[in-house]
């Protein structure tokens, strides 16, 4: 009922989005361990701690739920919006806050979904019995194709977050766009740049 209302959907998007944002921050801080320069000892220990933790499975399910909800709502919102203007303008111009980011949310979002699928396949559900996770990461990031694809995906994610982050606050009732603009851009660069930097560093460091 809530999720069929226009603001309800947006509220759902904003809350799940902020949770996913939190996940990204946690994930990124874990990933930085890859750069510690100790041959992956800390990173492997960290990953083994997570894998062995009894709460991992429930948390993963919650995360999956959040992610799916975010996607389902996004598609529903985009579908409503498309229906709301069956005949488009011959000429369209922007005079307000419309940006590449805001206009392409559904596309940058869906690209991210594909990336996540590939990413899970490569690292989480890969058969790396003979190797540590660190080893797998390093091996994977020797491929130009993979590093390049990863970087492109992160740029798109950054674009997604650029609009998403400030938009979430407006949806939650905090009209703080001018004040949030700087913070929002900063966080986008941190996350997208941070994630993209690691494979590059590994690739170049070889």
């Amino acid at each position: 009922m809530i999720l069929s209302s226009s603001i309800g959907k947006k509220l759902g998007m904003a809350l799940t989005g902020l949770l996913l944002f939190g996940f990204l921050l946690a994930h990124l801080s874990g990933n930085f361990l890859l750069l510690k320069g100790d041959g992956g000892a800390t990173f492997n220990a960290y990953s083994e701690f997570l894998v062995g933790h009894p709460l991992l499975i429930p948390v993963e399910f919650i995360l999956l739920g959040i992610f799916l909800l975010h996607i389902v709502l996004a598609i529903s919102v985009a579908r409503d919006n498309r229906r709301a203007r069956p005949v488009g303008y011959r000429v369209s111009a922007s005079v307000g806050g419309r940006s590449v980011s805001s206009r392409t949310m559904i596309y940058s979002g869906l690209t991210t979904l594909i990336f996540v699928a590939v990413h899970l396949k490569t690292f989480k559900y890969a058969d790396h019995a003979g190797d540590s996770l660190y080893g797998l990461v390093v091996t994977t990031f020797t491929s130009e194709l993979y590093v390049g694809g990863y970087a492109v995906a992160m740029v798109l994610l950054g674009f997604h977050l650029w609009h998403a982050f400030q938009s979430a606050f407006q949806t939650l009732g905090l009209h703080a766009r001018p004040r949030l603009r700087g913070l929002s851009i900063g966080l986008c660069i941190l996350i997208a740049g941070g994630f993209a930097m690691i494979p590059l560093a590994i690739y170049l460091g070889k």
Binding site: S6, K10, D80, R85, V95, G97, Q170, L174, H175
Partner: peptide, 24 residues
């Protein structure tokens, strides 16, 4: 449609009504 916080509305509004109304 739904609001996706682009603020085009506020920019063209002849009475310059703010999107802070939407936040409200």
């Amino acid at each position: 449609g739904n609001c996706t916080n682009e603020y085009e509305c506020e920019a063209v509004c002849p009475k310059e009504i703010s999107t802070s109304n939407i936040a409200f």
